[in-house]
């Protein structure tokens, strides 16, 4: 017996896809940023609906809460003008990228399909019902055993990112140093 998606999941999926399309079709970057926030939020709700509550909470807190607010902040700080989505003379680029993405989508679905069929067989045995533990304990067991090195590497990555942001944020560091040397 396979589990079919619930009505709520169909609804959330449609909302997520519509907001994702609004991100790339909106003329105003503010509209794009706010619909990105909506996309991330409704993805978090989908995570809740499949029983991954902890990941859903992290998604909503960090992604929809912090990262997309950073995007909205920067978009409003820079005071960008609404841009045209379609620029004349670039039609080949649009056609090419739509064709490439359609091909990618079909190829990805086809390559995943055998795996999905096998997993359907597993569902018949009821194995997926047995272990649905995706709580903080199960996730941190994985992070602190099998993914220990990547987990530690993200600490270094975040440190490097903080230092990089500080260096980029300082106004004209190099020219200031030159001026102070001339004095």
């Amino acid at each position: 017996m396979t589990v079919s998606p619930t009505f709520l999941q169909w609804l959330l999926g449609a909302v997520t896809l519509a907001l994702a399309l609004l991100v790339i079709l909106g003329r105003n970057p503010v509209v794009s940023a706010i619909s990105l926030m909506g996309t991330l939020f409704s993805t978090g709700l989908i995570f809740f609906s499949v029983g991954a509550q902890f990941v859903g909470a992290v998604q909503i807190l960090i992604y929809a809460g912090a990262i997309s607010v950073l995007f909205i902040f920067v978009v409003m700080l820079l005071d960008l003008r609404p841009t045209r989505v379609r620029i004349p003379g670039r039609a080949p680029v649009y056609v090419f990228s739509f064709v490439v993405c359609a091909l990618f989508f079909v190829a990805a679905i086809l390559s995943v399909l055998p795996v999905l069929r096998n997993l359907g067989a597993i569902e018949i045995l009821g194995l997926s019902e047995a272990g649905l533990d995706q709580g903080p304990v199960a996730i941190s067991m994985q992070l602190l055993s099998k993914y220990m090195i990547p987990f530690q590497a993200t600490a270094l990555l975040l440190l490097a990112a903080v230092m990089g942001v500080v260096v980029l944020g300082k106004k004209n560091m190099l020219s200031e140093r030159k001026q102070s040397e001339q004095k």
Binding site: S4, P5, I24, I46, C101, I109, L116
Partner: peptide, 23 residues
């Protein structure tokens, strides 16, 4: 099934992102 629906949705969102990144 639910898995097919969710993986299809994930791939669709990825493809939308690729189209936007290129255009």
């Amino acid at each position: 099934s639910e898995l097919q629906f969710l993986v299809g949705l994930g791939l669709a969102i990825f493809s939308v992102g690729v189209v936007g990144f290129l255009t």
